[in-house]
C-alpha cells in the first residue's frame, strides 16, 4: 500500500486488490480525505449552479447540509452493511469496511467533467450524456461498494451484492407495509 495518490489510482483501476488492502490496513484518515474529495468536488459544482440559478441565499446552507448528510450516510451506511455482512457470516472489521466504502465513492468526482462536457453540448444531447454518464458513475460507485464488501469480508461477488441489497429490500418492504397500512386506515376517509 503506497501513499495516498497511489491508493486513489488503485481504487479506480485495480479496485479488488486495493479494497482488500484498505480493509486490512484501515486507513480511516485517508478514507476520510478521499470521501471528502468525492463530496466536496461535486458540491462545489452544485454551488455554482445554485448561485447562478437563483438559490443564492440558500446555496451555502444547502451545500453544508448535503455534505453533512453524505458524511452521516457514509457512517450509518457502513454500520448497516457491517451488521448485514456479519449476519451473512462476514468476519471483517467495521473500520475496514468503513474505510473501504469511503474510498468507493471516489468516482463521484467525475460528475464535474461530465457536467461540463454536457454543458457544451446541445440541450437534447446534453440530457442524454448526463443521464448515461450519471448512470455509469452510479454503477461504478455501487460496484466499488460491492468490491469493498468483498474485500472487507472475503465474500464472493453474489454474497456481497446480497449484503448491499438486503437493507434496500428491507426498506422497500417496510415502505410497502406502511403504504398498505396507511392506505387501509385512510382509504375510507379519502373515498
Amino acid at each position: 500500500m503506497g501513499p495516498f495518490l497511489e491508493i486513489l489510482y488503485d481504487v479506480l483501476f485495480s479496485p479488488a486488490a486495493a479494497m482488500r488492502q484498505i480493509a486490512a490496513r484501515q486507513p480511516v484518515g485517508q478514507a476520510f480525505g478521499a470521501f471528502l474529495l468525492s463530496v466536496l468536488i461535486p458540491a462545489g459544482a452544485a454551488y455554482f449552479v445554485l448561485q447562478t440559478f437563483g438559490a443564492g441565499k440558500f446555496s451555502g446552507a444547502a451545500i453544508f447540509v448535503a455534505i453533512a448528510a453524505r458524511l452521516a450516510a457514509w457512517f450509518v451506511g457502513a454500520a448497516i452493511l457491517q451488521l448485514v455482512a456479519e449476519f451473512y457470516g462476514g468476519r471483517g472489521t467495521a473500520l475496514g469496511l468503513f474505510a473501504a466504502i469511503g474510498f468507493a465513492h471516489l468516482p463521484a468526482i467525475f460528475v464535474v467533467p461530465l457536467a461540463v462536457a454536457a454543458l457544451l453540448l446541445p440541450a437534447g444531447a446534453a440530457a442524454i450524456v448526463l443521464a448515461a454518464g450519471g448512470l455509469v458513475l452510479l454503477l461504478w460507485i455501487l460496484s466499488l461498494v460491492v468490491v469493498a464488501i468483498q474485500g472487507a469480508h472475503g465474500f464472493g461477488a453474489a454474497k456481497a451484492v446480497l449484503v448491499l441489497l438486503t437493507p434496500l429490500l428491507a426498506a422497500a418492504a417496510v415502505a410497502v407495509a406502511v403504504a398498505v397500512f396507511v392506505g387501509t386506515a385512510f382509504w375510507p376517509l379519502l373515498g
Binding site: I41, G44, A45, F48, V49, T52, I109, F110, V112, P113, A115, V116, L119, L120
Partner: peptide
C-alpha cells in the same frame, strides 16, 4: 482535469 472542469463550470454556468 477535475479542477479545470470545476473552474470551467464557474464560467460556463452563468
Amino acid at each position: 482535469v477535475v479542477f479545470v472542469s470545476l473552474a470551467a463550470a464557474a464560467f460556463l454556468v452563468p
